Computed example of a mutant assay.
Amino acid sequence: MTFSAIKSLGAFALFALGTVTGVARAEMLHFPAGKATFDARCAVCHQAGGKGQDGLAPPLTSYPGRYAASAQSRHQLPDTVLHGMYGEIRVADKTYNFKMPNFDSMSDDELAQVLNYVVFDLNGSHGPAKPFTAAEIKDARAKPMDASAVYSQRASVTKALGLR
């Protein structure tokens, strides 16, 4: 549609065009339920789109995809959301010192959906990662861990993946 045609239709045409564009954007999400949970519970620290907050919460736009694509490190993501984590970490040459709360009160399906949103909708490259399932979260929930164990485990995972 040309600009003059839109102009002649007035505000209604702009509203309709904006609505169609908004629908197209929403359809690009693979995990909209995960996005809703992320926006409600995670974005307060990790910010919209998982861009992170300097000094406080790291960005979630690259490392989670790498974790999820590797069999040896995939468990780090469910462990982190289930048990929380605290301590100083480095991501992409920036330092963060944050106490991430646990989200163990959320259902297995909710946690799988939010992890899938982070891995598949926020991360540009997730390699051969497969989506998380509620059963996978349930298995992770059964492991006895605490936030300090998650922190120690993360150090091993980032080293093994060559991330610093």
Rank of each mutant, 00 (worst) to 15 (best):
M1V: 13
M1W: 04
F3R: 14
F3S: 12
S4K: 11
A5W: 04
A5M: 05
A5P: 00
I6K: 13
I6D: 06
I6Q: 12
K7T: 08
K7Q: 11
S8F: 02
S8K: 15
S8D: 15
A11D: 11
A11C: 08
F12R: 15
L17G: 15
V20H: 05
T21H: 13
T21F: 15
G22Y: 12
A24Y: 07
A26R: 12
E27H: 06
M28H: 03
L29P: 01
F31S: 13
P32A: 13
P32D: 12
A33D: 15
G34R: 09
K35S: 09
A36P: 03
F38R: 09
A40G: 05
C42S: 11
A43G: 12
A43W: 06
H46Q: 10
Q47K: 14
Q47N: 13
Q47V: 11
G50R: 06
K51P: 00
K51S: 12
K51T: 13
G52Q: 03
Q53N: 07
Q53M: 09
G55W: 10
G55H: 12
G55K: 14
L56G: 01
L56P: 00
P58K: 08
L60N: 06
S62W: 02
S62D: 09
Y63F: 12
Y63N: 09
P64T: 05
P64Y: 02
R66N: 02
R66I: 06
A68Y: 01
A69L: 02
S70M: 00
S70T: 00
A71R: 02
Q72H: 00
R74H: 00
R74E: 00
H75V: 03
H75F: 00
H75K: 02
H75R: 00
Q76V: 02
L77F: 00
L77I: 07
L77C: 01
P78I: 01
H83S: 13
G84W: 04
G87H: 04
G87I: 06
I89R: 14
I89L: 12
R90K: 15
R90N: 13
R90C: 10
D93K: 14
D93P: 03
D93W: 05
K94T: 10
N97F: 11
N97K: 15
F98M: 10
K99I: 04
M100L: 04
P101K: 09
F103H: 14
D104N: 15
M106H: 11
D108V: 03
D108H: 03
E110W: 01
L111Y: 03
L111S: 03
A112T: 05
Q113V: 04
Q113Y: 03
V114M: 05
V114R: 04
L115V: 03
N116Y: 07
N116S: 09
Y117Q: 06
V118D: 03
D121Y: 02
D121T: 04
N123L: 01
N123I: 01
G124F: 01
G124A: 10
G127K: 01
G127S: 02
P128M: 04
P128N: 12
A129S: 14
A134T: 08
A135G: 08
A135P: 08
A135H: 06
E136S: 09
I137C: 03
I137G: 02
K138C: 02
A140V: 02
R141E: 07
A142T: 08
K143V: 14
K143N: 10
K143D: 09
M145K: 14
A147L: 06
S148Y: 12
V150D: 08
R154I: 05
S156Q: 15
V157M: 14
T158G: 09
K159L: 14
A160K: 13
L161G: 05
G162Q: 10
